[in-house]
């Protein structure tokens, strides 16, 4: 084989080695969510398909695949079909820069964190195009809510990321993790950590901020008109986004692939294990929050984003940089 085709083959294999585990863990995450919700509400959760019901989500996917894909007659056909694809593509291409361990990453680029921020901010297009192309009231309202909500919370996510970047002095994700070797940023930047998790809930349209798909007022929000596999793609993308935001939280605040304490039996375990465990813990928090909190009202959501998070993160950026500057701790 020529070197170019060899390189291409390796690249494609690398991509598959990220995408396939992500899609499988989406299926397991859906199962986990139903089990956790079941446990919180004193039910059993899925327990029929496969051992402990673990194959339930695969059965659900098969069911979705065999259903008829309905196209509303008054919709914009191209955009209607394109929107779920776009959402899923965006939730998968972000994995190109996520470092699972110090060597295991598809593309180690200089501006990794900005790339992730850009891709996660494009996510709103899938929702807004879906809502508009459906040409129906509830999806449209869902799309408007989603656009306003995601833009509002991106602002505070941006400031949280800036705070971390000030402490690191690099936009490279591997550098960000390696600077947390001795102390995870979740400890000195605890308020930012909490704000980031809450904003991630809003950014992925999860409860208690799932107003774009608020079933009590909007039927199913932006994907009301979707059926079969086009609905399935939205579903996949939502959960893949949850995993992505959890990985981002782990990279920014929980020290990526580093063990909690750098002592012998812990640091002998491979980094991928620690990464997955941390992502799992953050995902469990997502599900826990869903089972615990009631949904926010829309004005409460906007108030939290603009009047509490924005000023707080802005002040915290100033405080952090002043602290680092005064004590000469700024990275070069």
């Amino acid at each position: 084989m020529t070197s170019l085709s060899l390189e291409l083959t390796i690249g494609i294999l690398k991509i598959f080695s990220f995408v396939v585990p992500v899609l499988v863990s989406v299926a397991l995450l859906v199962y986990l969510e139903r089990k956790v919700l079941g446990a919180v509400q004193l039910r059993k959760g899925p327990n029929v398909v496969g051992p402990f019901g673990i194959l339930q989500s695969f059965a659900d996917v098969l069911k979705l695949l065999t259903k008829e894909n309905l196209l509303p007659s008054s919709s914009n056909k191209f955009l209607f079909i394109f929107a779920p694809m776009l959402t899923l593509i965006l939730s998968l291409i972000a994995w190109a820069v996520i470092p699972i361990s110090s060597t295991y990453v598809i593309a180690n680029i200089n501006i990794g964190i900005l790339y992730l921020f850009a891709v996660s901010s494009f996510g709103v297009y899938g929702v807004i195009i879906a809502g508009w192309a459906s040409n129906s009231k509830y999806p449209f309202l869902g799309a408007l809510r989603s656009a306003a909500q995601m833009i509002s919370y991106e602002v505070s996510i941006g400031f949280v990321i800036i705070t971390v970047l000030i402490c690191v002095g690099s936009l490279n994700l591997i550098d960000i993790v390696e600077s947390q070797k001795n102390m995870w940023f979740a400890i000195p930047l605890l308020p930012m950590f909490v704000i980031f998790i809450i904003s991630a809930l809003a950014e992925t349209n999860r409860l208690p901020f799932d107003l774009p798909e608020d079933e009590a007022t909007l039927v199913a929000g932006f994907f009301t008109e979707y059926s079969s596999i086009s609905f399935g793609l939205f579903f996949l993308a939502e959960y893949a986004n949850m995993i992505l935001m959890s990985s981002l939280t782990v990279i920014l605040f929980l020290g990526g692939w580093y063990p909690p304490i750098d002592i012998f039996p812990l640091n002998a375990i491979p980094g991928i294990f620690w990464f997955v465990i941390k992502v799992f813990l953050i995902l469990f928090v997502f599900l826990w929050v869903r089972a615990t909190f009631p949904r926010y009202r829309y004005d409460q959501l906007m108030r939290l984003g603009w009047k509490i998070f924005l000023p707080f993160t802005l002040i915290w950026v100033v405080i952090t940089s002043a602290f680092l500057f005064y004590f000469g701790l700024l990275p070069n």
Partner: peptide, 12 residues
């Protein structure tokens, strides 16, 4: 990520 979404928001 921001300007065009607001455009779209208004134009829609």
């Amino acid at each position: 990520g921001a300007v065009a979404i607001l455009f779209l928001f208004v134009v829609m």
